[in-house]
């Protein structure tokens, strides 16, 4: 004889017992009024829960979600173009600086006569490079480079802040 625990009753309700156990439970339920009452209550709860209705969200919920999503599409696209243009500008600036240095070095280090030896050319190239770098990082040029880097840092800071802001909005924090 099995003990009609709550677990057995739940399993019986869900049809999880084998044939023999089911027959035993049915017999107990028929013969015991208290167990019959327990099972009736459980069965009724099961039925009431099955009849539970869904809660409804506000009418414009779908529109709100789609609007939020469309905003999240537009902002990154605009930012992407901005990032591309700034990055292109910085890359062009770097290329310009490199080209300028190279031209300066080669114009000063170029062999005057064919009798100059390769080592002398390399030495001149080295000296030229050092002097150009000195020129580049001294006085007015240093201010320009500093300004360019500051601009880069400011732009990075802006995008970092924007990213944080958007993440917070998306997470609803």
């Amino acid at each position: 004889m099995i003990l009609l625990s709550d677990e057995i009753l739940n399993k019986y309700l869900d049809g999880e017992l084998d044939k023999n156990q089911t027959a035993e439970v049915e017999e107990i339920i028929i013969n015991s009024e208290s167990d019959r009452k327990r099972f009736s209550a459980l069965k009724r709860i099961h039925k009431e829960l099955s009849l539970m209705q869904e809660d409804k969200v506000s009418v414009d919920f779908t529109n709100n979600v789609m609007t939020m999503l469309s905003k999240s599409f537009v902002i990154p696209a605009a930012q992407k173009y901005f990032i591309y243009s700034i990055t292109s500008f910085l890359i062009l600036l770097c290329i310009g600086i490199v080209v300028f240095i190279s031209i300066s070095i080669f114009s000063s280090a170029a062999p005057q006569t064919e009798s100059l030896q390769i080592t002398e050319t390399v030495n001149r190239f080295g000296n030229g490079l050092i002097s150009e770098l000195k020129k580049l990082f001294s006085g007015k040029n240093l201010s320009i480079i500093g300004s360019v880097f500051s601009l880069g840092i400011l732009i990075s800071g802006y995008f970092f802040f924007e990213h944080q802001k958007r993440s917070k909005i998306n997470l609803g924090a």
């Binding site: 739940n10 327990r38 209550a41 459980l42 709860i45 009431e48």
Partner: peptide, 19 residues
């Protein structure tokens, strides 16, 4: 969860009413 609900139903003598 079901048992907790069932116990309340029995304790408040609502079985007949529900059935």
């Amino acid at each position: 969860s079901r048992n907790a609900l069932k116990d309340i139903i029995i304790e408040n003598n609502l079985v007949e009413e529900l059935i």
